[in-house]
Structure formats: structure tokens, C-alpha cells
Computed example of a mutant assay.
Amino acid sequence: MEPSDSALSEKLDDDHYPAYTMGQATEMLGVTAAFLRGLGAANLIEPLRSTGGHRRYSRHQLRLAARARRLVDQGTPMEAACRIITLEDQLDEALRLNAEFRRRAESSRETPTS
């Protein structure tokens, strides 16, 4: 059964859709399969598996892998690079939530009460 155009479009637009094989990922990133497996072992990315058991990566995961590669290329050990990326992302999310809470608090103070 063929997917509808809208279903296909949703998959193509989904940053977390596992569209890339390991071969495609290694070629795009200029890394080895062992490097990608290492990122999985360090719990930075967890590729989904196809029905045949092959690893599939999303664009989001490829961006994380590219960040890790830059750090490793600068001499950071892989485990440390993965931890740095995880902590950076957690900090970004905390800052985003903090800003959202502040906006809500300011908005509620500005709203006149009846």
C-alpha cells in the first residue's frame, strides 16, 4: 500500500523520522560506522531498527552526531563529547522553560483583575 502524499510529507518534515541508513549517515557526516555505534554506546543517539534489524537515523540524530564529531575532532574523548552535548541540550531546554515561565508570570501581572 502506497503512503498518501500528506503522510509522506509528514515523514519528510519530521525531524525525528528515521530516514537514513548507517551507510548514508556515515557518508553524510564523514565518520565511520564504529563512530556512530560509539555514539549509541555512549547513549547520545539510539537509532531505530528497520524490520531487518538495520540501524536507521533521523535528521535530529545526525545533527547530534555532527556536534559530537566536531568535539572529538578537537580532541575531546567521545564519552565526554556526548556528555557535553547532553548537558548543553538540557541547559537550552531549562533556559527555554525559564523564559516561558517568566513571560507567563509577567503576562498574569499585567492582566487587570475584575
Rank of each mutant, 00 (worst) to 15 (best):
S107E: 15
E100S: 13
A105R: 15
R103F: 10
A42V: 04
M78R: 07
T51R: 09
G40R: 11
T86A: 07
R63V: 14
L44E: 05
I84Q: 12
A94Q: 11
D73G: 07
A41Q: 09
Y57Q: 02
P47V: 02
R96L: 10
N43R: 15
E106W: 09
I85K: 05
A42G: 08
G75H: 05
I45N: 01
G53I: 13
R104A: 14
H54R: 09
R96N: 04
Q90C: 03
Y57V: 04
T51D: 12
A81G: 03
E106I: 03
G40H: 05
G40D: 11
T86Q: 07
E100G: 06
Y57R: 01
T76E: 10
C82S: 09
L97S: 06
A68L: 04
E79G: 11
M78E: 04
S107M: 15
G40W: 01
V72A: 06
E79L: 14
A80C: 13
R49M: 10
P47F: 00
A66D: 13
L48M: 15
M78D: 02
E79N: 13
T86Y: 01
R104W: 09
E100I: 10
R55K: 13
M78N: 03
A99I: 02
L87C: 08
A68N: 03
D92S: 07
R83G: 09
S50T: 11
L64T: 06
N43W: 04
A81V: 07
T76W: 02
A68S: 12
C82D: 05
A81L: 02
R103H: 12
C82Y: 06
P47Y: 00
P77M: 07
N98G: 12
L97W: 08
E79D: 15
N98L: 13
F101I: 14
E88H: 04
D73T: 11
R63D: 09
A81T: 05
P77A: 11
Q74D: 14
A66M: 07
I84L: 14
Q74V: 08
D92K: 08
L97F: 03
T86I: 04
P47M: 00
I45E: 00
S50I: 04
L64P: 04
R67E: 10
R70Y: 00
L87D: 11
D89K: 06
L91W: 02
L91E: 07
L71H: 08
E93W: 03
